[in-house]
Design a binder for these strands. Structure first.
Length: 623
RNA sequence: CGGGGCGUGGCUCAGCCUGGUUUAGAGCGCUUGGUUCGGGACCAAGAAGUCGGAGGUUCAAAUCCUCUCGCCCCGACCA
């Protein structure tokens, strides 16, 4: 078809056939481009593809200064997202297409394990959170406000209360159990510090699911099914390196929980992995299989250590390794009570472990005044001679099971040699509170643990009856007796998942999308479209792909080759076709994969069919 | 919340230390015309900024001072 206006070859040469609204996919419909006059008040839709000349969302050559990590840089530069405020982003058309595909995969897998999609409000009355008690326990990350009638409201950061509100009024019989409800909804958390681009934001889209069971056994069974669904989801969205690890269930309550971690350097979490994959744990709860030195106990002996307070100084002064000493660390818990922690000198206290053991929300280093008040001497504090009424003593196994340690003497400038737990101190709680170090032996396999960083893209919890008890969410059993429903909850961060995929799949030019969530399947570039035949051939291929349901992005701008190629790299569509005078001369088009694995000339005549086949084959790999 | 950094056209930045040759610049992007045309071309002409905001010092403030707001990074917190 001839170009209608030869002086403006970069305009799309043909108008699409307007298609009325209808047949919209669940969730979101796309509005197609316009390349010509359209009837007033009429938005054509139904075209799954796009001409690049019409696409809103400019690529940029410069890296925005606020972008630090790879995913953030490419999502900004590629025209996927734009910042609005700290930790708050708009999604541009490309970003919407990617997240919509991630959501579609999540829906399929949630439906597959019997989930029923619902949609709960973002704005919730505070009274619901008063019922569960969380309006008191959750801090300022919960955004609260009042409506015009002065009624306290809040923005949902998670929806346990809302879903329980739903469940307790809709379901009352054991015959209706179990069931699972899920939604894909905006969440708001007023983070103290949003960071990492799309990794930690204040407003985000999350799939959150809640299952309800008659008993814990049923929950445990179902939990395994959801775990499998999660493994499928993260494989299907194209995360190559995503592990499920044991995690700290923290303040969510409940016993069993897993986090799904996309391994990436910019991740906020530290993960320990056994090389054979048999042990995987978050740093917050990771254990090590360290062996401790047992010897014949030596007598307790006071030694002069003038001015030596730090472990390194004491050890050097006495000519022993730091691992032959005991380190004293004082904390103050949330109730202001003093806690004394004793750990082997070369190890650190894991405050999350300690906090969990103490069931204390807060834990701070004690200042010298508080230490003295308990009868201890800062710098020379000792497990010996502490007043049990004033301080709670926690001993890590590394200190409890090691023989003949050097510890403080509770007297300025003096330490003890030959401290042995069980002989010199008995009345203490022995609990693992140690930070694991990379290379420490795995508690399961004994192999050296590897440490890496992970992005938490999903988590699953066996919640139990925490919310059903407090919010009175019961069912009647066969005998007409009421029981609290036993709950599980399951989250996935959609935007985080998109960012994590980019972190794991990119090169120096831009993202390399997996076919399953790529914004488009095929990127067609018409080079020198003013030359005879090029625009026509590219347009024909474009229409042919559309007719076969392939989502094609058509670069019809007639930009210089390098410019177009760089844009294509930055967008990251997995398959690329180049139509140019050169290729047409040989009745060919050029085919290239974004990952660089393939690059070949294919016949123009069969190009459409070829590409349809390639897309189908690639998609099949993500089913 | 503690520490650090940064706010100058849509984007990246220079100018600030040492106030006045600055009617506030450059590159990218954008508009118009022309030449180019396979890895971010070139020429010419243009549009676009109350220099984050308020107050102060001064004959004179993007520049110095005070306050304030916003954004980014490290930490704390959170998941």
């Amino acid at each position: 078809m001839p170009c209608p206006d030869a002086s403006r070859p970069t305009r799309a040469p043909t108008a699409p056939v307007p298609v009325p609204h209808g047949g919209r996919q669940r969730g979101r419909g796309y509005i197609a481009h316009f390349a010509g006059a359209r009837p007033a008040g009429f938005l054509p839709s139904g075209d799954p593809a796009m001409r690049l000349s019409r696409l809103v969302g400019q690529r940029t050559k410069d890296t925005p200064k606020d972008a630090q990590n790879v995913s953030h840089i490419y999502m900004m530069r590629g025209g996927y997202v734009r910042p609005v405020s700290a930790g708050i982003y708009s999604l541009l058309p490309l970003g919407v297409r990617v997240t919509a595909k991630i959501e579609a995969i999540i829906r399929e897998e949630m439906d597959r394990v019997g989930g029923q999609e619902v949609l709960m409000p973002v704005v919730l009355p505070q009274e619901l959170w008063d019922e569960s008690g969380r309006s008191k326990t959750v801090g300022p990350e919960l955004l609260r406000f009042k409506d015009r009638n002065d009624k306290p409201m809040l923005l949902g950061m998670t929806h346990e209360e809302a879903v329980v509100h739903l469940a307790r009024s809709e379901v009352s019989s054991y015959r209706q159990m179990p069931f699972m409800l899920y939604q894909i909804q905006t969440k708001y958390r007023d983070e103290a510090r949003p960071r990492g681009g799309l990794i930690r934001v204040r407003e985000f889209t999350m799939k959150d699911a809640y299952s309800f069971h008659a008993d814990a056994e049923d929950l445990a069974r179902y939990y395994e099914q959801v775990h499998e669904a999660y493994v499928r989801i993260f494989r299907r969205v194209g995360l190559r390196n995503c592990v499920s690890i044991q995690s700290d269930s923290g303040m969510m309550g409940g016993a069993v929980s897993h986090e799904f971690m996309a391994i990436a350097d910019c991740g906020e979490d530290t993960v320990y992995l056994s090389p054979d994959g048999r042990y995987k744990a978050n740093k917050e709860i990771a254990r090590s299989g360290l062996k401790f030195l047992h010897e014949a106990p030596l007598p307790l002996e006071k030694v002069h250590t003038p001015g030596r307070t730090a472990i390194e100084e004491v050890a050097a002064f006495l000519g022993v390794e730091p691992s032959r000493t005991g380190k004293a660390v004082f904390y103050v818990d949330g109730d202001g009570k003093l806690v004394f922690a004793l750990i082997r000198g070369d190890l650190e206290v894991n405050e999350t472990k300690l906090r969990n053991y103490l069931k204390s929300r807060e834990l701070k280093f004690a200042d010298d005044g508080a230490i003295r008040a308990a009868g201890a001497v800062p710098g020379y504090a000792s497990p010996l001679g502490l007043d049990p009424a004033k301080v709670r003593v926690i001993v890590d196994p590394s200190a409890a099971e090691s023989s003949n340690l050097v510890v403080g003497a509770n007297e300025p400038d003096y330490h003890y040699r030959g401290f042995n737990y069980g002989r010199d101190l008995t009345a203490a709680e022995v609990v693992d509170i140690a930070v694991v170090r990379p290379g420490d032996p795995c508690p399961v396999t004994g192999l050296p643990l590897e440490m890496c960083r992970g992005i938490e893209v999903g988590n699953i919890f066996q919640l139990g009856t925490k919310y059903s008890l407090s919010m009175n969410c019961n069912y009647l059993d066969a005998n007409g007796k009421a029981h609290p429903m036993v709950m599980g909850c399951y989250g996935i961060g959609v935007g985080r998942t998109m960012a994590a995929v980019v972190e794991q799949s990119h090169d120096q030019y831009g993202p390399v999308w997996p076919m399953s969530i790529a914004p488009y399947h095929v990127h067609i570039i018409g080079l020198n479209p003013r030359q005879p035949g090029v625009a026509e051939a590219a347009e024909k291929l474009y229409q042919e792909l559309l007719a076969h349901g392939v989502e094609a992005l058509y670069d019809d701008r007639g930009e210089k080759a390098g410019f177009s190629f760089n844009d294509a790299d930055l967008i990251g569509v997995p398959l690329r076709v180049i139509v140019s005078p050169k290729t047409l001369e040989a009745q060919k088009v050029e085919f290239k994969t974004r990952d660089g694995s393939r690059h070949e000339m294919i016949d123009l005549a069969g190009a459409g069919e070829f590409l349809v086949g390639e897309v189908k084959a690639a998609l099949a790999g993500y089913r």
